[in-house]
C-alpha cells in the first residue's frame, strides 16, 4: 500500500469501514502521521454530532443492568504494566532456580530459531501472516504504548489458538549502537523473550513469532544486540492485555 493510499483511508477508518487487514495497516501508520491523526479525530468528532442528533433513549431498565454489572466489573489501571514487569522480575530473582535458567536457555533457543525462521521474509509473507492471525476467532491486537517519548509505534496481533504473533513496528528510531529492541511476552509467571528486532532493518519491523502462551502484557525493551534471555533494559513500549 502506498503512502497516499494509506492517507486516503482516514475517513473509512473513522467510519469503521475497513476490513481487519486494512485497519491494522492503517493503525500502524496513523499514530505517527499527524495528518491522518488530525483527520481521524475530526471525522470522529463530526460523526459524534451526527450520532447525537439521532439519540434514542434506551429502556429505563437498562441503566440498572449496566450499573449492576459495573459494580462487579474490575477497572483497568491507567498504566500498570511496568509494575507487572517489575513484580515479574522480582519474582524471578527470588526464585532463580535451575529450571528458570533452563527456561531462559530455551527462550534463547526459541529466539534464535525465531530469528532464523522469520528474518528476511518478504512483505507479502508478513501480510499473509497477519491475515492468518487476524482470521482466528481468538485473534487479538494491541497498540504498544510508547513510554520513551521517542518516535515510532509498535503493535502486536496474536492468536493463542494458532500459537503465532505478528509484530508491526513503524518509524522506529535506530537502537543505540550495540543494542537492539527485544520483544517480550509477559505472563504472571514470567517474561518470555520473543524476538530480537534487528536495528539494521531500519524504521519498520515486521516479525512473525511463535507465541502459544497467554500474554498479560507485551513489552519491548532495549537489550544487548545479541538479545538477552531476561529483560535488563527499561521498558520503552508496553501494552497491557
Amino acid at each position: 500500500m502506498s503512502d497516499i493510499d494509506v492517507h486516503h483511508l482516514a475517513a473509512a477508518y473513522a467510519l469503521d469501514a475497513l476490513d481487519d487487514h486494512e485497519r491494522a495497516a492503517f493503525e500502524a501508520h496513523y499514530r505517527s502521521c499527524e495528518v491522518c491523526h488530525t483527520d481521524v479525530s475530526d471525522f470522529r468528532a463530526t460523526l459524534t454530532q451526527v450520532s447525537s442528533a439521532m439519540a434514542v433513549p434506551p429502556p429505563e431498565s437498562l441503566k440498572d443492568r449496566v450499573l449492576a454489572e459495573v459494580a462487579v466489573t474490575r477497572q483497568l489501571s491507567p498504566a500498570v504494566v511496568p509494575a507487572v514487569m517489575h513484580i515479574d522480575l522480582a519474582a524471578r530473582r527470588r526464585a532463580r532456580t535451575v529450571s528458570i535458567t533452563l527456561a531462559a536457555a530455551a527462550a534463547v533457543v526459541a529466539v534464535v530459531i525465531g530469528v532464523l525462521a522469520f528474518s528476511g521474509r518478504s512483505q507479502s509473507t508478513y501480510a499473509n501472516d497477519l491475515a492468518r492471525v487476524l482470521e482466528q476467532p481468538d485473534a487479538r491486537m494491541v497498540d504498544l504504548q510508547n513510554k520513551s517519548g521517542t518516535a515510532g509505534s509498535f503493535k502486536v496481533a496474536w492468536s493463542k489458538g494458532l500459537g503465532e504473533a505478528v509484530l508491526i513496528g513503524e518509524n522506529l528510531p535506530p537502537a543505540p549502537s550495540d543494542k537492539a529492541y527485544e520483544l517480550w511476552l509477559v505472563t504472571p509467571q514470567q517474561s518470555m523473550a520473543m524476538s530480537v528486532l534487528d536495528p539494521a532493518t531500519g524504521g519498520n519491523v515486521h516479525r512473525t513469532v511463535k507465541a502459544s502462551a497467554d500474554p498479560s502484557a507485551w513489552a519491548i525493551t532495549v537489550e544487548p544486540k545479541a538479545g538477552s534471555p531476561v529483560a535488563t533494559g527499561s521498558i520503552i513500549y508496553v501494552a497491557n492485555v
Binding site: 470522529r44 468528532a45 447525537s52 449496566v66 454489572e69 474490575r74 483497568l76 491507567p78
Partner: peptide, 24 residues
C-alpha cells in the same frame, strides 16, 4: 449498549481528554 458502558467503565482510567472529548 450495555457492553459499551461496561467497556467505558473498564477503560475509564485510560481516557485521555487531549485526544478528544468523552462523548466522542
Amino acid at each position: 449498549t450495555q457492553e459499551v458502558f461496561v467497556e467505558l467503565w473498564r477503560l475509564a482510567a485510560r481516557f485521555d481528554g487531549t485526544k478528544g472529548s468523552a462523548r466522542t
